[in-house]
Amino acid sequence: MLLEATDIHKTFQEGRETVHVLNGVTLSLARGEIVSLEGPSGSGKTTLLSIVGCILTPTSGRVVIEQHGVNAQHQGELARVRRQYIGFVFQQFNLFPALTALENIEYALNIKGVKGAAAQREAQRVLVAVGLAERLHFLPRDLSGGQKQRVAVARALAGNSPLILADEPTANLDSVTGGQVLEMFRALAKQENRGLLIVTHDPKVRAVADRVLKIEDGRLI
């Protein structure tokens, strides 16, 4: 199994009040599998994504990625897991505005330890794969919303991270572009045998997902 999250609880302290955001969530994801995680606002889906993405630590529960238990207490260990196993796609794209499409991918690869010509080759490969061969040297401001999201997808795929986590990847795209991005996403995930967890409100995501999970009040239903 690529990802196993077991009995995940997460509480936040808001003033004197303890808010239970996740209440014993258990989920798993295999390589090559696409899972859609749906739920209303405040249901805990982004918190769950943050925890399985090793960005947040659970209050209790266990996260295992590729048979490696994640030591949630150590920030350096969490950063290492993110570098080695996880690619992110964000709702707001989160590209670096001062870097070209190619440099955005190269920089992410540099962080993962891939440098020089190897990083450049891999960045070109993934950008070509997402259909941006003609836009390698464009700054994000010169790209459309769909093209930006393609760069973001390419960044997540670069470096062979087995687990791709996407937060509302179509929220800022029109329906046609969103559909195209999802199809591309699905094709690449299947072709490259990556596990893909998509948090979304968008019903179109169901069409590309192998499995749909629903979350409400911090519980999978």
Binding site: I55, G76, A79, R83, G87, F88, N94, F96, I111, K112
Partner: peptide, 16 residues
């Protein structure tokens, strides 16, 4: 700040 958050999210450290 958000860019630095992204650096951290993609595996970068405070040192980076």
């Amino acid at each position: 700040l958000k860019e630095f958050g992204t650096v951290k999210a993609i595996g970068g450290s405070n040192g980076d």
